[in-house]
Amino acid sequence: MEGLGLFNYWIAVAIMMVGFYGVIAKRNLVKQAISLGLFQTGVFLFYITMSVYRAPDGTPGRAPVWEAILDGFTKDPGPYDNPLPHVLMLTAIVVGVSTLSVALAIIMNIKRLYGTVEADEISEIEEAIEHREEMMSR
């Protein structure tokens, strides 16, 4: 049963690894950028999962503030999930979006100046440039 209890962590790690594999193995720059986003999403899920709380008697935790506001802070809201990782992930999502947008902006420029977004073709072009430079410097 313990393996199933860790189900969310398995999924988080699986998403992370799919993303990581994509960053390393894909030769298309846009696909690399998307995989990078996927990799970061896996980490978000990991953080969210760690915040889940279950009381020793099995009561699942709830959203901490909402329940208390609904009853006007009259009684103990009971076990609640840790809000801190959620807040952290809001920030991390913003960071992830900005990373992806900077990456896409750079890729757009690459497409404009190289005419391709395939890493192999780009490195061919760059090797040609380097070869020419070496000839020049002799």
Partner: peptide, 20 residues
């Protein structure tokens, strides 16, 4: 030099992996 773009993207990908 247009190679700045690919250098920057390489840094971005490796740097983001490091930060993550």
């Amino acid at each position: 030099d247009r190679r700045a773009l690919t250098a920057s993207l390489k840094y971005l990908i490796l740097g983001s992996i490091g930060a993550t």
